[in-house]
Design a protein around this nucleic acid. Structure first.
Length: 275
DNA sequence: CCGACGTCCTGCTAGC
DNA sequence: TGCTAGCAGGACGTCG
């Protein structure tokens, strides 16, 4: 489940291998992604140089000279470079021929997507329309105000990409634990100090996860095929029944906002305005 | 307008 | 041992 730290790691590890390279051609797999690759995109991309690679939320942008490719890894997506003679793995949907290397997009569950934008302004609009601020650029006031605007449980707000870009199920649970807040607590009921504690916790958790190259819990691998290491430091995610690292009590798993939700009932009390 | 929920997709696993 | 139902979840559409 690539979230912000995993996507950031993919971008960082890919950067030295793709920037400055030219796309010589595109090979399209048989199965369709959520939005299929249009045949007209292939000639538009062929011959173009990759000038930059960047991240916004969980989205990866490949900046071609005058156009953009926008990649979302979904749950099981992988964007990696390969030697041209390396056998093509199952579920490989796109191969960008970079000459001496391949950039391949692989996604077994097909929740991912690759889109082409002829116009960079359209690409920017696409992202800006659905994404809120980057966690690292959030100022305390904007954050507190946006949490006050919704009555949903705080976890649902964290998962909403329009509230803050890049947080998914893992880092929502981890951030709430570090902040000592119940995932069920209503967003608008957070006090100003609680909101600030959550912002700080979220930033710390995400930074730390980036330092560990993200979390490999399913099939996540970075742009060079290396796994992340942050899964060893999970405090609550996937630790159902295991002892809380702070109080020793069992970590609980419940369902919230349609997602499995892990918390420590003792360290994240639902009382004091709990819902 | 807002929030809750269903849908997509397939590999893995818990449970019989 | 072998089978299958159910679970995993990011984005988005739909419904109340």
């Amino acid at each position: 489940m690539p979230e912000l730290p995993e996507v950031e790691t993919v971008v960082r590890t890919l950067r030295p291998h793709v920037v400055g390279r030219r796309v010589h051609g595109v090979v399209v797999g048989a199965k369709k992604l959520r939005r299929g690759w249009q045949s007209s995109w292939t000639p538009a991309v062929a011959g173009r140089q990759i000038e930059f690679i960047g991240r916004r939320g969980k989205w990866i942008t490949l900046g071609l000279d005058t156009s953009r490719l926008l990649v979302h890894l979904g749950m099981t997506g992988q964007l990696r470079t390969h030697a041209v003679d390396e056998p093509v793995a199952d579920h490989t949907h796109l191969i960008f021929d970079l000459g001496d290397r391949h950039l391949r997009f692989r996604d077994e569950r097909r929740f991912g997507s690759v889109d082409y934008f002829a116009d960079p302004i359209e690409h920017d609009r696409f992202l800006d329309h659905r994404l809120g601020p980057e966690p690292f650029e959030l100022d305390a006031e904007t954050w507190a105000a946006s949490l006050r605007r919704t009555t949903r449980p705080i976890k649902a707000a964290l998962l909403d990409q329009a509230v803050v870009a890049g947080v998914g199920n893992i880092y929502a649970d981890e951030s709430l634990f570090v902040a000592g807040l119940s995932p069920r607590k209503r967003s608008h009921r957070l006090t100003a100090p609680e909101a600030e504690r959550l912002r700080q916790s979220m930033v710390d958790v995400l930074r730390h996860a980036i330092e560990r190259n993200g979390s490999s819990i399913r099939n996540y691998l970075d742009g060079t095929g290396a796994p992340g290491g942050y899964q060893a430091e999970f405090r609550v995610y996937g630790r159902t029944g295991e002892p809380c690292r702070r109080c020793g009590g069992p970590i609980r798993c419940t369902r919230l906002a349609g997602r499995s939700t892990h918390d420590c009932p003792r360290c994240q009390p639902a009382r004091r305005g709990g819902s």
